[in-house]
Design a protein around this nucleic acid. Structure first.
Lengths: 248, 248
DNA sequence: CGAGCCGTTGAGGGGATTCAAGCTCAGTGG
DNA sequence: CCACTGAGCTTGAATCCCCTCAACGGCTCG
C-alpha cells in the first residue's frame, strides 16, 4: 500500500524543545482576524502576548506528536501542515491539511494527548499558545468558547469532506480533488505546494507508482506544470475541463 | 460506484414536523450520565426538562437533513444513526455512525445548517433539544461548554479513524473493520445490526456485489452468522483470527 | 401472481498494485 | 574531477482485485 513505513529519517522532536522566541507583533499580524484570537481586542491580546511563542519548521519537521501530552496549541501563520496517523497495518495515512489561520492540537485544551502527528509540509511559521493561556482567557472572554467550537466544527467538516472527495472514485479524480485543495494554499504568484509522490499516496490511498502516473498524465495534458522540485502551477482552464470530465 | 442515487423512496421530512411528545423521565434515563446533559444536576435538568421532546424513527427515516436550518440538536437514546453526504458525483457516502449517548447536529449550536443527513439505521429513539435551550444552559453552566467541545473532539476522532480504518486496504479487511464497530452497538444478546449490502457499499466505498461477496465469505468461514433480515452475530474467536490474518 | 427490492453468484474487463528497471540529481569521498 | 551512492520520479509488464454487466432466487406487498 502507501508509503513511508515508520517515520524513519525525520527530524528530531523539534518544536516542543526548541528555543521559543517571542511572537512577532500580534496587533499587526496579517492573519490576526482569521486566527483563534481574532475575537480578542487589543487589550485582551496584550495580556497573553507574553506567553505566545513563535515556532518555525522546515519541511518534514514535526510540530506535534500523536499520543504525547499536549501543553500547547498552535496557530499556523504560514505554510501547510499535514495531520498523519498510522493505520492498523503500520502504514501512514494523511487525514487532513491545515494552512494559515488554522489551529493545531485543540484536543490539548480538553486535557487529551495530541490525536495526530502534525508535520510541516512546507516551511511553516506558527504561534505556540500554552493551553493554560487559552483556558484563562476562555474564563474571561466567553466568546472564545464559540470561536473554539467553530474551529472544531470546521475541522470535522474538513475531515468529512476529505473522506467523500478524496477517498472515493478513480485515482485521477482523487488527484484533481487534492490539487483543488492545494490551490487554496497557493502563494501570491499562483504556485502551489507540490507534494512528493509518496505523500500523494498517503493522502489519496494509492501507491507511489499510481500517483506518479496520474501526475504525469496531468502534466502531459497541460493541466499541471511542475515548477521546481516541490512546486507546481495549475492551468485554470485545463484544470476546470479535467475536473468537469471527472477523471476520464 | 456505490448505491442509492438520490434518496428516492425515503420517508418524508419526518422529525422536524412530527408531533413531539415530552421526553420520558430524564432523571432516571439510562444514558443520562453519557449524554450531553450528564454534567447537569437534577435541578438544572429540571429547568430544561419541559423543552426536551422525544423523537422515534423507523429504519431509513431522516432525523435531520443536510443544508437545512438547525433549530435543535438530538441525543440518541437507542439505535444507530448514520451520517450521509453526497459526493461530487451525486452518489452518497456514509461518513460516520453514532449510537446511544451521542449527539446529532451540534453545528446548529453555532448557527450553521446541518452538515450531513442523519438517518436512522435501526429503530431509533432520540431526545430533541432546542438549540436555544442549550445556549441558555450554557450561559448558566460553563461546564456544558467543555462537554460540548469534548463531543466535537470525539466526532472528529471518529471521522479520522473512519478514514484510516475503513477507507483503506482490501475489501475484506474494511468489512472486518466495520463489523468491529458495529459490535459496539450490539444488544445485550450479542446481536449486531447488519446493514444492507448497499449501505455497506456506501460506508466502505465498494459496490453492492463486492459487499455481498465479502459478507458471504465471512459467512462461509463461520465468522459471521446472519440472524434475521437485518441482524447478525459474530463468532468472537473466528472474528479475531480473521482480523489477525488481516483479510487474507 | 406479477412487481420490485434485496441478496447472491458468475463471467469478463479494467484500473490499480506489484515487481522491476532505468532515469535525474544532489551529496560524498576517492 | 568523477565514480559512487541513494532518494525521488518515471515507465513497463504482469498480475490481481474489484467493478461492470448479467442472470437468478427468495421475499414482501399491492
Amino acid at each position: 500500500m502507501n508509503a513511508h513505513p515508520l517515520a524513519a529519517g525525520m527530524a528530531p522532536g523539534a518544536a516542543c524543545l526548541a528555543p521559543r522566541p517571542p511572537a512577532p507583533a500580534c496587533e499587526s499580524c496579517a492573519i490576526r482576524r482569521h486566527a483563534l484570537f481574532g475575537v480578542l481586542d487589543d487589550a485582551e491580546l496584550a495580556a497573553v502576548r507574553g506567553q505566545i511563542g513563535s515556532v518555525e519548521l522546515g519541511p518534514d519537521e514535526r510540530l506535534v506528536l500523536r499520543g504525547q501530552a499536549a501543553p500547547a496549541v498552535y496557530t499556523v501563520r504560514a505554510g501547510v501542515v499535514r495531520f498523519e496517523r498510522p493505520t492498523a497495518q503500520g502504514l501512514r495515512r494523511i487525514v487532513r491539511l491545515v494552512g494559515p489561520g488554522e489551529l493545531v492540537g485543540a484536543e490539548g485544551l480538553l486535557g487529551l494527548p495530541y490525536a495526530d502527528d502534525a508535520i510541516a509540509c512546507t516551511a511553516v511559521e506558527a504561534c505556540r499558545i500554552p493551553c493554560a493561556a487559552v483556558d484563562a482567557l476562555h474564563r474571561a472572554q466567553p466568546r472564545l468558547g464559540d470561536e473554539l467550537m467553530r474551529r472544531w466544527q470546521q475541522a470535522l467538516e474538513a475531515s468529512e469532506t476529505w473522506l467523500t472527495e478524496l477517498g472515493t472514485g478513480p485515482a485521477l479524480r482523487r488527484l484533481l480533488g487534492l490539487l483543488a485543495r492545494l490551490q487554496r494554499y497557493a502563494d501570491d504568484d499562483g504556485r502551489i505546494w507540490m507534494p512528493r509522490r509518496d505523500e500523494i499516496g498517503s493522502m489519496l490511498d494509492m501507491t507511489v507508482e499510481t500517483a506518479s502516473r496520474q501526475v504525469s498524465r496531468l502534466r502531459r495534458a497541460g493541466v499541471l506544470v511542475l515548477d521546481g522540485p516541490r512546486h507546481a502551477r495549475l492551468d485554470a482552464k485545463a484544470f476546470a475541463e479535467a475536473l468537469a470530465r471527472g477523471g476520464e
